[in-house]
Design a protein around this nucleic acid. Structure first.
Lengths: 216, 216
DNA sequence: TTACACTTGTTCCAAGCAAGTAAATTTACT
DNA sequence: AGTAAATTTACTTGCTTGGAACAAGTGTAA
């Protein structure tokens, strides 16, 4: 159960600049939203709950984000950015199979740690399929960026000779991403089956190695 | 736009047995639900709309299925059964890679034909991730059945010698299903990118061949 | 005194339930 | 057997609750 924040006005809350106030309320509502989404699902998360859990009025979330979709879109963008950065730092300087393996390992680690933001992100991710809103557009853009990253890893691998030059970078990237999504689906549907998730990541790594790296 | 059925009472509607009446209303509401889910998404599909689109009162869908989740669960079960059968007939008598390739081809054909029931099914499929209801349980069971089928294909392939005996049937089945789900995600998110979907299916076939079939 | 952050009041609409009506099936009686 | 009353079942209508969305308000920083 998520507790309602008692008041924002503790200590240094008075005398804040406008920007600081919105930053604070944005963050508090973001955190409230993430908790509520993970606890009750997107359907049963209400704007009223988000506002009140964050310690504000029932109306603020709706006012700030315009709609439920607007809130979710904000949450996706915020987590997506954080996530892109982490992924980038993990694969920094790596190419080809090495980069892909690193990204798979990082992915698996996320499933093990199961940070609340990541779970919320994937919930919204799969939700995006059935909506027609901005959320969907944001998702498509995120996936496109991901795709470009993977293509680059593979292409760089081909260029530096660590990847077979017969490999179709686009094709492999697509297949890789599809599988990652499928694994995440499996994880979200049955988080308790972490063994299966671990094995899936291992198998994906092996498969990618077979597909990318020249055989002796 | 889905039109409201004008009256159920045309011609031979009077003098129906109780079972016939519920069968008819179940079917009409099922069809209405599928249309509405595909047209407006699961979120904006209302029980009221389902009842009225089927030609009944606003209340019937809620009365019959108990809740929105109950309706969706019914829809999933109904399409899932039909789908299992189709899949079974396509892979009838086939084993190993042959069965998997047939199932991939059938899958791609579904995406091309895009039957409305299939689209609704996958929408509910991805929705299941974020709910805690019966829908989720139904989904887990469907995936488990699917998994068992694939394991059997691979195992039979090992037994008859068409698949390398070093293959881990469980592992390959999991990876295969994950990838199929990922491909479906991609298709649902961007149905217009049918080329990408075709290529994904092709690549999956090739990959499965590499994984399963002994190299010369 | 203007602009912005936030709250409160209100409308609309869906979900879910309860109490109603109408149609079919069983039972009772001839 | 046939038919009328009683009962069960299919469906509808009325009502309550609660969220989304928007408008008009209050208070705080520029």
């Amino acid at each position: 159960m998520i507790e309602k924040r008692q008041s924002i006005g503790n200590d240094a809350s008075s005398r804040m600049t406008h920007a600081e106030r919105t930053d604070l309320s944005d963050t508090l509502m973001f955190e409230a939203a993430v908790s509520l989404i993970v606890e009750k699902g997107t359907e049963k998360t209400t704007l009223k709950d988000v506002g009140e859990t964050a310690g504000y009025s029932r109306g603020l979330a709706g006012y700030r984000f315009g709609s439920k979709g607007g809130l979710f879109n904000y949450v996706i963008k915020r987590i997506g950015d954080e996530w892109s950065q982490e992924l980038r730092s993990v694969t920094e300087g790596k190419t080809g199979y090495e980069a892909i393996a690193a990204s798979i390992d990082a992915h698996y680690q996320f499933c093990v740690d199961a940070p609340i933001t990541r779970r919320a992100f994937y919930l919204l991710w799969f939700d995006a399929v059935s909506t027609t809103s901005d959320v969907r557009e944001s998702m498509i853009r995120i996936h496109q960026r991901r795709h470009q990253d993977v293509v680059k890893w593979v292409q760089d691998g081909i260029d530096d000779g660590s990847v077979k030059d017969t490999v179709d970078a686009e094709a492999v990237a697509q297949l890789f991403l599809a599988t990652v999504i499928g694994i995440l689906y499996q994880w979200m549907l049955q988080p308790e089956a972490i063994d299966a998730v671990r094995q899936l990541h291992e198998n994906l790594k092996q498969t990618m190695q077979v597909l990318l790296v020249a055989q002796p």
